[in-house]
Design a binder for these strands. Structure first.
Length: 110
DNA sequence: CACCTGACGACCT
DNA sequence: TAGGTCGCCAGGT
């Protein structure tokens, strides 16, 4: 439960629908700013987790859907987010990303 | 056991 | 502006 992965899942599960956060923000929140890659790795292994982990709500720092190729089909991630009210430009980048950004360090502010 | 790779990101040419 | 390097941690070969 104190594993880095488990902590990542705990945070991701707290992301509200219609909001998104970044790999780096989660890593920083967990105290390992340089471990953003691990967050992505954790998402990749999220199927190993018993609970639902909204991996589609985690994007890179530009609001770009860099992980879309890891879903069943490349458009699933985008469609899930659109269902939650997010909009995208022609580059699969989230519009109004700053407004939609959910920073665990701030929102959860321990 | 050593080496490689990866859903990132900050920094440095 | 674009491209290369490095750190981060875990898991696969």
């Amino acid at each position: 439960m104190s594993d880095f992965f488990s902590q990542v899942y705990e945070v991701v599960k707290l992301i509200p629908a219609g909001r998104v956060t970044s790999y780096g923000a989660i890593a920083a929140y967990l105290g390992s700013p340089g471990a953003a890659r691990m967050v992505g790795w954790a998402m990749n292994a999220s199927h190993h987790h018993p609970d639902f982990v909204p991996a589609h709500r985690v994007v890179n720092r530009n609001g770009l859907l860099t992980g879309k190729h890891h879903f069943d089909t490349p458009n699933v991630m985008k469609e899930l987010l659109e269902n939650e009210g997010l909009l995208f430009d022609d580059n699969d980048q989230i519009l109004n990303f700053e407004e939609r950004f959910w920073d665990p360090a701030k929102e959860l502010s321990l």
